[in-house]
């Protein structure tokens, strides 16, 4: 396994200055969008819209600033596994609370 990893990573990708700035601008725009979206009242959907926009922002940070886009498959799988189990944990819990106990929220 170590050998295949070596082949993948002999040339480490260097992201350009321009790409750094583009990601930053996108993150600021999405922050403004988060604030604007919260001004409308969609009931319980406000929370899910907020989480959705936050996840788009998180993807930008992980993929570009944390260089995961240019990283090996292994690190992507490791981090994605963490997020997957968190998703499983939260979705099951929230479906229960928001449909059974508090359907009006």
């Amino acid at each position: 396994m170590a050998e295949t990893q070596h082949h993948e990573h002999h040339h480490h990708h260097l992201m350009s200055l321009q790409t750094h700035l583009k990601v930053f601008v996108a993150l600021v725009i999405l922050t403004v969008l988060t604030v604007v979206a919260a001004q409308f009242h969609f009931g319980v959907f406000n929370t899910f819209i907020a989480i959705f926009i936050a996840t788009v922002k998180a993807t930008l940070v992980m993929g570009w600033f944390m260089h995961l886009k240019y990283d090996g498959v292994m690190n992507r799988v490791i981090f994605a596994a963490g997020f997957f189990f968190l998703l499983l944990f939260s979705v099951v819990c929230l479906l229960d609370i928001y449909t059974r106990i508090n359907p009006r929220a």
Partner: peptide, 30 residues
């Protein structure tokens, strides 16, 4: 770097557990 990423997963799970707790109680006491 792989070690750092493994550490990051534990961080995500730690904050994640607290966030899920937050969302559960938010659903109970909106």
């Amino acid at each position: 770097k792989q070690g750092v990423w493994l550490f990051m997963v534990t961080e995500v799970l730690m904050f994640g557990a607290l966030l899920v707790g937050y969302l559960i109680f938010k659903g109970l006491y909106p």
